[in-house]
Amino acid sequence: MRRRLSSRLFATYLFLAMWIGASGCGSSSPESKNSGGAAHSKRTVCLLPKIKGISYFTSCHRGAVEAADELGDIELIYDGPIDGDPKKQAEMIEQWTVDGVDVICVAPNAPDVVANAMREARAAGIHVITWDADGTADSRSFFVNQATAESIGRGMVKAMVDDLGPDAEGDVVIISSDATSANQNAWIDVMKPALAESRLRLATIKYPGENASNALADAKDVLQKYEALKGIFGISSVAFPGAAEGVEQAGKSGQVLVTGLSTPNDMRRYVKNGTVKSVVLWNTIDLGYLTVRVASALARGDLKEGATTFDAGRLGTLRVVGDHVVLGDIIVFTRDNIDQYDF
């Protein structure tokens, strides 16, 4: 009897110990300082990416850290769903709202899904801004506008048409993410009419999801299928390198052009070997930097509705149009200028 009881107790305590051990293993991390509203000397800024763990958002984070270090009174929290689930984004916003942070900067992966949580955060007196992609109008006070869906979609089509030459005819294919991906669908809605104005025909749209093997496979399949294929748009962080790799492996570098959105570091190899002529993006480090600058100004009350200019530290004075803080236009990275950028 005694042995039975003691082994049960032992098991229970082992369970406890394992659990506490498991949750305690992160306690040495630098972010472990609790931010629960007690530290008023520092302002807490939460930076919420669409997906945590991909290089695009990691480079934005670099810029954000730079700004936070410069400003000195910012406690920066960078967290987001590792699987890119917009539902989890909304839940993180709700948790931060309860924590009473000062500013929440959201890169909405699906503007509709996070809108309610953002409105509630605003109602609780928290400044909410969007960056990277805009949310619904009443869910945020400012949008750090590096590019709109309109300019991204048109920019990609323009890059393709410019690279192929204005008289080029033939097929193009879009490789997207999932059929339900809100951002990609918004870009596609812009790209379709833009393509209709050119002489290129949109042959099909493939949906490989966030799966690199599928993206590579889809690229190779469309290369085999469409003989008149002139270009592929890879419009997710997985699809673009996947499409470029597919074209390179098929030995069609230079014959079929690939373009899309990506950080220069991820695509440098393909730009150098001619598979990709143009990479469309913006300066992600500046984007992260500006987002934290705007967040800080909002928290201090330096940035108010109706402002027309914004002093953005090392970026100089930027325009504010309506409720958009304008970072500048998209950058097209080519073989000539890509080595000037490291992110």
């Binding site: 945590k52 989890k88 948790q95 309860v98």
Partner: peptide
């Protein structure tokens, strides 16, 4: 974990 460490991983 979401409110204390804020690390999704």
């Amino acid at each position: 974990i979401g409110r204390y460490w804020k690390i999704d991983e």
